[in-house]
Every structure is written in C-alpha cells, then in structure tokens.
Design a protein around this nucleic acid. Structure first.
Length: 299
DNA sequence: ACCAGTCAAGGAAGC
DNA sequence: GCTTCCTTGACTGGT
C-alpha cells in the first residue's frame, strides 16, 4: 500500500525537529533588518526539517510526502513581498534546498502540495485572486527549484471553494487559470469538497476535466459528506480516470463522530479497489497513523 | 515548564 | 452589513 505523509511527522516533532513560522504581526513588530534575519533562519530551518522528514518517510516505507504550505512564511504578504534571493542568508537557504532536492532524488519519494485552503480562483475580489495566484506561483517556484516535474506526478492540489452556479464559477476559474504560469497549470489538480453541494467528484469532472483536462483528486471523507447519491466506488473510478497515465494522489481520512474533523488514527484501511494509488493520509497522528495502517495492511 | 490566548486566511452562515 | 465560525500548528505572554 502506497501512503503519503501530510506535512508533519509527529515522530520527528517529538524530537524537536519542527517547522517554525512567523506572523505578519511579529514581522512588523521589529525592524525590517532584524525581522529578515529571523525569517531567513526560519526558512532555512523549514527546508532542513523537510529534508529530514523525507528521509524519515523513506526509512519507514512511506512512499510520498505532501509539502508544508508554510515553508516560507509571509514572503508573499503584500507588505513584505520578497523573493528568496532577497533574504539575507539566501546561500544558506539555497544549500538546504539543494539537500531537499538530493533527498527526493535519492529516496524517490513522490511529493506534492496542497496550497492553502484559503486560495480561491473563483473570488469576485481581485485582491483575493492576486494573492491566490502569487501563492500558487510560489509553490511552483519551490517545486522548480527542487527539480520536480512539471506534471501531475508532482501535483498542486486545491479546492474551488466558492459555491453556487457551476457554469458561472467554472468560467471565472478558467479565466483566472489562464493567468497562471505553465509551472502551475501543468501541476494543478482539483479536489472534491463538501462545504456546499456544488463541487462533488462528478461536477469537478464534468466542468474541469471534460473541457479542460484538469484531474480530479478523490477525497473519501469529503465524498462521504457530499456525494449526491453516487457510490464511493463509482466516484473513485470516475476520479481515477481523470489522471490518465499518472498514478493518482488521492486523500484518505476518517471522520471523528461521523463528522468532518479528522480522527487521530484510522480504524479501517484505505480502499484502492485494486488500482494503484498514492494516498495522502489526513489523520491527526500523522506518521503514527500511517505506520499503523501499514502494519495492519500486511496481515 | 506549562497553559491559555493569539495569529493568518476567504467564504458561509447567522444576527 | 456586520460578526462569528471554520481549521491548524506554532508563537506569545503570563504564571
């Protein structure tokens, strides 16, 4: 069974191998020089943690890794607006990036990302669109620095977010999609959601795959919460087909009390219906939950 | 050392 | 047309 870790290893966290972050409020509270120095150290740390996490996955038979979307905090904030090259210790950061690149090459771990839940390419607010595009481009920029393929093998997975008339929202989305670089476009995939009733697997497929060949990420828990009467098996295969020759990255999780809050550990096993899939495991106990699934799947 | 409160984001839902 | 909630992990400040 091919499983993928989402962002954080709880095992490494307990050994104080942890991501760090910085808020805009904190950045603004000190001189720009001082804040840049601190931010630089945080970013270098985050790439180092990423490298260690990838090697930790490889050592534990975990086949994939979803990058944190907060590796380089606040550099895209409108009032900060920095490229990595502008940071005081860029050489140190660049060196860490090269180590991450090497780790991916040596371990053959498959990586992807799930940029912020707040990204929206369907918003009526131009600022929201601009910020979303900037965020996606930053993800693609990091992927390019890491030498990752410009293909769905290394996907950037997002949601549509806005609910309502599917035709209308699809048009807005595609108009903004055209503003993205090829580095983003070639990796962008769309995941079913359950916040309203619009974006289940079948609608994503109908509007974005049939017309524009954008693959659909199947998330079993979102499907459970919103399926419009479609069986899980059918939704799985409908989504599977949209990935063509690329092995899909799907999401697996279980809900607490039958709700959408993620459980700590899995009770069941991801269902692959005999197909080859990489499952991002979205459970709170992270690698502990993955190792438990792998153990149980062997029996 | 620990704990409660803070921070960031866009959209939806509830007054 | 406001406020609150949703979500998440690290940070911050008080004890």
């Amino acid at each position: 069974m091919n499983l993928s870790l989402c962002c954080i290893s709880n095992i490494l966290s307990e050994k104080d191998i942890k991501f760090r972050t910085m808020t805009f409020k904190s950045f603004s509270s000190k001189s720009r020089e001082e804040s840049l120095e601190k931010l630089s150290g945080i970013i270098a740390n985050n790439f180092l943690v990423t490298e260690k996490t990838i090697r930790h996955c490889a050592a534990n038979n975990i086949k994939g890794y979803r990058f944190s979307s907060d590796l380089c905090p606040i550099i895209n904030h409108p009032d900060v607006n920095l490229s990595l090259e502008e940071l005081p210790n860029f050489k140190l950061i660049d060196n860490e990036i090269k180590k991450v690149k090497l780790a991916i090459e040596e371990t053959e771990i498959r990586v992807g990302a799930h940029p912020s839940e707040y990204i929206s390419l369907t918003s009526e607010n131009e600022n929201v669109i601009n910020n979303s595009i900037k965020d996606l481009e930053q993800h693609a920029d990091i992927f390019n620095r890491l030498g990752l393929s410009e293909s769905y093998y290394n996907p950037l997975n997002i949601h549509i977010r806005k609910e309502g008339d599917a035709d209308f929202l699809c048009n807005i989305f595609m108009k903004n999609f055209e503003r993205l670089s090829c580095s983003v476009k070639s990796r962008l995939v769309l995941e079913n959601n359950d916040t309203g009733s619009t974006w289940d697997v079948l609608n994503l497929k109908k509007y974005f795959w049939q017309h524009y060949n954008i693959p659909v990420t199947f998330d079993n828990l979102h499907h459970k919460m919103l399926n419009n009467g479609v069986a899980e098996r059918d939704a799985f295969f409908e989504a599977y087909e949209t990935w063509n020759d690329t092995i899909p990255i799907f999401h697996y999780s279980e809900g607490k009390d039958n709700g959408r809050a993620h459980k700590d550990m899995a009770e069941h096993l991801p269902e692959d219906y005999g197909k080859e899939v990489l499952f991002d495991v979205e459970l709170k106990s992270k690698d502990y939950a993955i190792l438990d699934i792998l153990r149980r799947a062997e029996c």
